[in-house]
C-alpha cells in the first residue's frame, strides 16, 4: 500500500511517466526539480534537506552577520494567492538570509475567474527571470500547474487542501531535534485531516523517514480514501496518546461547524482537544506540536500550548532554517541542469 501511494504522489512535474505534462529533467543528486509534494522526497533527499538545515543553523549560529552570500544575484518570488503572513515572512527571511533578491507578489483575490490568470502571471514571472517561485494558492495543484509554465524552481508553500511540504520538513526537523532519528517513532496527528495540507505532507514525509503516523479525527474530518495512506487511523485520542512520541494538533477552522462536520466546538474539544489531562498521557519525552495559527481553547488549551514539551515556538524558528535549506538545494546546480 505504501509503495502504491508513493507512486501516485510523486508530482507529475517531477517525472511522471505518462507524458501528460511537460516533463523536465530532475535536478541532480536525486533532489527533485521542484518541491511540490512531500512525496517528491525519498528518505535520502529528505534527510539531505534536514541535514543541510542543521548545518545552516551551525553556520549561522553566534555570528555577527546573519546572512550568507549563497544565492546572491538570484531572484525568489513569493507568489501568494492566499493571505499567510507567517509563511510568507518565513520564506522571505530564508531567501534574504541567503542573499537572494525577494519579490513579494501578492495576488490575493485574483486567483479564480477574475484578474490575471495563473498562466499569465507565470509567464510574467518567467519574463522577469525568477529563479524560484514560492507559491501559496487556495487551489490544490496550482503550484504544480505553475511548474509547467516557468523554468525556475517552484516551491509549494501550501496549496488548497493538498500539501505544505516545507511545513512537514520543519516539523520533521523539530521532531528530530527532540527525538533523534524518527524511524519507529509514533507520531499522532489530530484534527481536520480532511482539509489539512499539513497532515497530507506530514503523513508522506514522516512515513518516508520511517515513523509510524496515526491520524486521529472524527470520521467526518477524514477523507474517503485515507485507508490508502501510509498511516493508521483512530477515532479515539486517549487511546492513541499512549505510547506516542509526539502529538501534532491541527488547526480546526470554526467554519467547519457550518458544514456539519461536528455538532459544536465544545463537543469537538471534549473529544479531540489536547488538554492537561491528555498531555499527561504522553511519555516524559513526548513532544507537543502545532503548525499554527492556534485556536487556543479549541484544539489545544493554553496550558498545554505554552507548557512543558511544547515546541510550537521552536517550529516557527526552524521554519526559516528548513526553508533556507530547501532554497539552497533547489537552486544549486541550476546552470548544470538548464545547460
Amino acid at each position: 500500500m505504501t509503495t502504491t501511494i508513493k507512486a501516485t504522489t510523486r508530482s507529475a512535474a517531477n517525472g511522471d511517466s505518462r507524458g501528460d505534462s511537460a516533463v523536465q529533467p530532475p535536478a541532480p543528486s536525486g533532489m527533485p526539480r521542484h518541491l511540490l509534494s512531500a512525496g517528491d522526497l525519498n528518505a535520502e533527499t529528505a534527510t539531505l534537506v534536514l541535514d543541510t538545515a542543521e548545518r545552516l543553523e551551525q553556520a549561522m549560529s553566534g555570528r555577527e552577520v546573519r546572512k550568507l552570500p549563497t544565492l546572491r544575484g538570484r531572484t525568489v518570488v513569493n507568489l501568494f494567492y492566499e493571505d499567510s503572513t507567517r509563511t510568507r515572512i518565513s520564506f522571505e527571511l530564508a531567501a534574504k538570509r541567503l542573499s537572494a533578491d525577494v519579490i513579494n507578489f501578492s495576488a490575493k483575490g485574483s486567483s479564480v475567474s477574475k484578474g490575471e490568470s495563473l498562466k499569465d502571471t507565470a509567464l510574467t514571472l518567467q519574463a522577469m527571470g525568477a529563479d524560484a517561485v514560492v507559491c501559496r494558492h487556495s487551489a490544490s495543484g496550482a503550484p504544480q500547474r505553475l511548474s509547467a509554465w516557468v523554468s525556475g524552481r517552484v516551491v509549494n508553500a501550501g496549496d488548497g487542501t493538498h500539501e505544505h511540504p516545507t511545513q512537514a520538513l520543519l516539523d520533521a526537523f523539530t521532531l528530530r531535534r527532540h527525538l533523534g532519528e524518527l524511524a519507529g517513532r509514533k507520531i499522532v496527528v489530530v484534527g481536520d485531516v480532511l482539509h489539512s495540507r499539513v497532515a497530507r505532507s506530514n503523513v508522506l514525509l514522516l512515513s518516508t523517514l520511517g515513523a509510524q503516523v496515526e491520524l486521529v479525527a472524527p470520521p467526518t474530518l477524514l477523507p474517503v480514501g485515507v485507508g490508502s495512506w501510509p498511516a493508521s487511523v483512530s477515532y479515539d485520542l486517549d487511546a492513541s496518546l499512549s505510547g506516542a512520541d509526539a502529538v501534532m494538533m491541527l488547526r480546526v477552522q470554526r467554519e467547519r461547524m457550518s458544514g456539519a462536520f461536528f455538532p459544536t466546538a465544545r463537543e469537538y474539544t471534549r473529544s479531540y482537544g489536547l488538554d492537561v489531562r491528555r498531555r499527561a498521557m504522553l511519555p516524559d519525552h513526548g513532544v507537543v506540536m502545532h503548525p499554527g495559527p492556534m485556536n487556543r481553547g479549541m484544539e489545544i488549551t493554553p496550558a498545554v500550548a505554552d507548557g512543558d514539551g511544547s515546541v510550537i515556538v521552536e517550529q516557527v524558528a526552524n521554519g526559516v532554517t528548513v526553508r533556507m535549506a530547501v532554497l539552497y538545494l533547489l537552486l544549486s546546480g541550476e546552470m548544470e541542469t538548464n545547460a
Binding site: 535536478a27 541532480p28 543528486s29 533532489m31 539531505l48 541535514d51 543541510t52 548545518r55 545552516l56 551551525q58 553556520a59 553566534g62 555570528r63 550568507l68 552570500p69 549563497t70 541567503l98 539552497y328 538545494l329 533547489l330 537552486l331 544549486s332 546546480g333 541550476e334 546552470m335 548544470e336
Partner: peptide
C-alpha cells in the same frame, strides 16, 4: 560550501560542519 562561486554549476551538495 555556502561561499563557493560555482554553486550554480555544480549539483547540490551536503554541507559540512562549521564550528567556531
Amino acid at each position: 560550501t555556502l561561499y563557493r562561486d560555482d554553486l550554480r554549476r555544480r549539483p547540490p551538495r551536503a554541507l559540512e560542519e562549521t564550528s567556531i
